[in-house]
Simulated assay, not measured.
Amino acid sequence: MTVHKGRGFACINYPIGMNLGGDPSQALVHATPDGKFMVTLSAIDLGQGMKSVTRQIAAEALGVPIADVYVDTADSDTGPHDMGSFASRGTHRMGNAVIRAATEARRAMLDAAADELEVNASDLETDGHGNIQVKGAPSRAITIEDTAIAAQFKQGRTLSGRGIFLIPPSEADPNTGEMSPVTCFAHAALVVDLEVDDETGEVTVIEINSAYEVGRALNEKLVEQQLIGGAWMGISHALYETTEPYYPDRSHAPGDFVEYLQPSPGDVATHNIAVLERPAEDAPYGGKGPGEMCANPVLPAVANAIYDAVGVRCDRLPITPEKILRGIQNNGGAQPKGAL
């Protein structure tokens, strides 16, 4: 029995969204009578942080504290249209829609405050702490709460905004049909170090080192956690998970999550991450979001590391101990490639 070390590398450029009729997202923003703001979306938070990021984006565009913004991810009956939470598009498409809706609501808010302060709206600014003040004369100010009250009960106006974002259609090459379905890409490079036992076929992931270019990390902790969780999901797909291990024969499919093979928290390996920020011109405050790019490069990196360790090239997932042992047997023994 010998435990062989292997190292695998993979890199990816991932398209953000896809141009399905412009891939539009819509957002609505309105103020409550006490000066809080509600953002209404139909984009679904799957645990990736959609509510948190759009809350931050709306607060920045409105010029109000984050604590005064609430996000309602409604549904297709009560919310504005959205193409869906897929294609790693949420931050880019929905973030842009939120900025446009919040910008319109901000204009209405400043107009209402201008009437109360008897100045031009262009002379006003927000301080980020819940106040609207005259530029250069902060003592002349009104709270956003009082502005909302005045708009609602005195001026008879709404502090609201609507926003939609869609990308321009790509021109297709008349000869080849080639086109670009997206406006920006995210990028990643990842290295996996692991060990393979040539007697049992067992794989142990030792360490992951990665670099992700996400445009701009709008919420650093959310980005970090998504990258860590997504990478481990990639490990799980590469080595463990399958609903139909003998497809198309379903006789051995797991009946529930007790039987479904996946790594436990105790199996999580060390993951060192470098987040590279290259703000995208058409992204909300430069952020593109990591999305599916978290997991995608992990699978080929694991396959490459196993090949490096014992010389077995697996092209079907998951890469089980059985497949590795059969590969070693067919090769006449382990054949380390020696990258480490």
Rank of each mutant, 00 (worst) to 15 (best):
E195G: 00
E244A: 15
T204A: 10
E207G: 06
T243A: 03
D249W: 01
R250L: 15
E213V: 00
P284N: 01
D198E: 14
T176F: 02
V192F: 00
E244T: 15
A253I: 02
V268Y: 12
A172N: 07
L239R: 12
G287P: 11
G215P: 09
L218K: 06
E281I: 14
Q155E: 10
L239A: 12
F153V: 12
Q155G: 07
A269K: 03
L261R: 15
P279G: 12
G177P: 03
D198K: 03
T270H: 10
I273R: 06
L190I: 04
E171M: 08
D197P: 09
T176D: 03
W232L: 01
K221C: 05
S264E: 13
E281S: 12
E171N: 05
V275T: 14
A172Q: 01
T242P: 10
E292C: 06
L218Q: 01
G289V: 06
G177A: 09
W232R: 01
Q152Y: 08
S160M: 07
M179T: 13
Y240G: 05
K221M: 06
E220N: 06
S180N: 04
E178M: 06
I167P: 01
A189N: 01
L261H: 14
T242M: 02
L261A: 15
V268C: 08
G291C: 10
F185L: 03
S210I: 12
P279A: 10
R250H: 11
L222Q: 00
M179A: 14
P245M: 03
A283K: 04
K288W: 12
G255Q: 14
I167G: 01
A186N: 11
Y212I: 11
T200P: 01
N175L: 05
G161V: 06
I164M: 15
H271Q: 14
V258F: 01
H271A: 11
A274Q: 13
I235V: 13
L239H: 12
P290F: 04
T204V: 13
R157D: 00
I235C: 10
V275L: 09
N209H: 01
V268P: 06
Y246F: 14
A186E: 06
F185K: 03
V196K: 00
A295L: 13
P168S: 13
D198W: 02
S160E: 14
A211C: 05
T242I: 07
R250E: 13
N209G: 00
V268E: 04
V192E: 07
V203Y: 04
A280G: 15
D198Q: 08
L239S: 13
P263F: 11
T176R: 10
F153Q: 12
D173F: 04
F165G: 04
P284T: 05
Q226C: 04
G266V: 07
W232C: 08
L159K: 12
Q225W: 08
